[in-house]
Amino acid sequence: MITNLAKSVQAFTSNVYLVTGDRTVVVDPGANFDVTGAIRSRVDDLDAVVLTHTHPDHVGNLDAVKDAFDVDAWGYDASIEGVDHAIGDEEVVRLGDDEYVALHTPGHKDDHLCFYAADAGVLFAGDLVFQNGSFGRTDLEEGDRATLIESIDRLLERIDENLGEMHTGHGPSVTRDPYDHVELSAQMARQV
């Protein structure tokens, strides 16, 4: 089961996904709210924290979650403070009950990962793409529009047209034709 713990939070934060099952993980612990309390209200323990990328709005709560649950954090670049273990491009990770392939998708930030479970039809898109054709900012440090477009194209080549759910770093999850939203993001990123 996937729950967005930041859904009703008014602070500046990313979405925070609690994925329960065989391996209970948090995808991006967010920032500026009591995420440990939100986690504890739903589960007793965590197996890991998995990061789409390390912008402050996605990892501000990282130390608090690691301390509260005595877990390690996994992300693309283990040389970044707070990231304990590297997840390589194309590496398979278990989130909840499903196997996800990690896709290195820079352009918004160099260490950006998307996680895609083909069998479950689920995508964690981080800040690469959002609903209605929106896409990640490229005006921040490490942002690059051409690289972002390449990453969106790579994602489109990997995901299935029958994708069931896309969970984004900000805004609502997309459960109605999410593939079309990714296609639109690819088009919109080229027009700006």
Rank of each mutant, 00 (worst) to 15 (best):
L155V: 01
A125E: 03
G169H: 09
D110I: 13
F124M: 08
T175H: 11
V192F: 15
N132C: 01
P56A: 08
D119K: 03
E91P: 12
M1N: 00
H167L: 12
I87L: 04
D47V: 06
D97M: 08
R158A: 05
G107R: 11
D45N: 01
H112M: 09
A117P: 07
L51V: 14
R190P: 01
D57W: 11
D153N: 04
D110H: 14
V65F: 04
V83Q: 02
D177N: 08
L46G: 08
I39R: 14
H170V: 11
V43D: 12
Q10Y: 11
A48E: 09
L148K: 13
Y179C: 02
S173L: 10
R190L: 01
Y76A: 05
R158L: 01
D139C: 04
I80N: 04
G75A: 06
Y100I: 06
A48G: 14
G82C: 07
V92P: 08
V174C: 13
H167E: 00
D119C: 02
T20E: 15
D153F: 02
V27A: 00
V25H: 10
D98K: 02
V16H: 07
R40V: 08
E91R: 14
T24F: 13
V129Y: 09
C114H: 03
V26Y: 07
D89Y: 12
D127N: 15
L51Q: 10
R176K: 14
E165V: 10
N132P: 05
V83P: 06
S151K: 10
V25C: 15
V27T: 00
G171Y: 06
V26I: 15
S151D: 05
V182A: 07
V71D: 02
D28M: 01
P56C: 06
P106V: 13
L5K: 08
M1T: 00
D84Y: 10
D45Y: 09
K7V: 14
L140C: 15
G60A: 03
G60Q: 03
A6P: 03
D63C: 09
M188N: 05
V122I: 06
K66D: 00
V192P: 02
E161Q: 03
P178L: 07
A120N: 00
V192R: 14
L51K: 10
T175I: 07
V35P: 13
I87P: 01
H85F: 05
G136C: 14
D72G: 08
D111H: 11
L51M: 07
P56W: 01
M1D: 07
G30D: 07
Y179T: 04
F12H: 13
M1Y: 10
V92K: 15
W74F: 15
D44Q: 14
A117L: 01
M1A: 08
A86W: 04
H108K: 08
